[in-house]
Design a protein around this nucleic acid. Structure first.
Lengths: 143, 143
DNA sequence: GACGTTCTTGCGATCAGGTCGCAATCGCCC
DNA sequence: GGGCGATTGCGACCTGATCGCAAGAACGTC
């Protein structure tokens, strides 16, 4: 079924006028093999283990193309590099300022806030594109 | 009353072991004269209009010191530079992905979410440190 | 299977935002 | 007014990301 997802994404790429290149296959495969969040550099490392010639800029460009197709999105988790994730499981991120831990939050956790913000401000929250900062249980100040 | 705030901050700086320098006076004054959100570069420009010798790195260092005192905090509004703001009026930010507009949100708008996240995940949200992305009323997709 | 068009790629330069080490300077306390 | 130590200006540096360019590869057509 990971193969299914791979083929589906590659097919999407091809039918939208893109080309199926070795680089893109490798990058999408690496993306599927990775955890829920990967930085572009992590992905580059992963990809280059098997294909040392695939350049950093190709990783960025491919991620950009995939973002255009709605396949991936990226989130800024505070100060470091952005992390990319597939869009098929919308979720939110809690990021600990102190230790950098990332906690997943189901998409519906913010639905009340979304409704409220839309009603009061006409603002449509994009539920996948931001991280919520704070302190995780381990790093929380006492009290 | 802006003078009050200025003096209060400078006093805080001095009593915490810091020194009152020309640079710091100028930077804090500029901060108070600026709008609610200002980037470090904007602040540098403002400060340098009157004190051309104050270096960019001094701006960053002073902002860092002030953050340590709890006087200012910074937020990352998406891809660009961070924006700094005084902490005396806690609030949140809605940032439009399309046009960059920033909408203020009163701190209490997130209190329900805060309670819930703390209860369910033991995670203490830091209410000032993140921006909520999405589309503002003007840029929202129709429907 | 060869061909030509057009999209992709590798490469290195470049950019933005921010940080750091160092020597010189300046505040503050006595 | 002197001395200690914090602060500053300066420029080099760092990371994350983007870009222009020429070479290379994919795909539709024949």
């Amino acid at each position: 079924m990971a193969d299914d997802r791979l083929e589906r994404i590659l097919e999407l790429l091809r039918t939208q006028g893109g080309r199926l290149t070795t680089s893109r296959r490798a990058i999408v495969a690496a993306l599927l093999e990775s955890g829920l969040h990967v930085t572009a550099e992590d992905l580059a490392e992963h990809v280059q283990a098997a294909h040392p010639d695939i350049h950093r800029s190709t990783i960025y460009r491919t991620l950009d193309t995939l973002a255009g197709l709605g396949v991936v999105d990226h989130v800024h988790l505070g100060h470091g590099p952005a992390v990319y994730h597939l869009t098929d499981q919308p979720h939110h991120h809690l990021v600990c300022d102190a230790c950098g831990a990332v906690v997943e939050l189901p998409a519906r956790a913010l639905s009340a806030l979304r409704r409220r913000v839309e009603r009061d401000y006409g603002f449509q929250l994009d539920p996948g594109h931001f991280a919520l900062a704070g302190r995780c249980a381990a790093c929380a100040p006492v009290g």
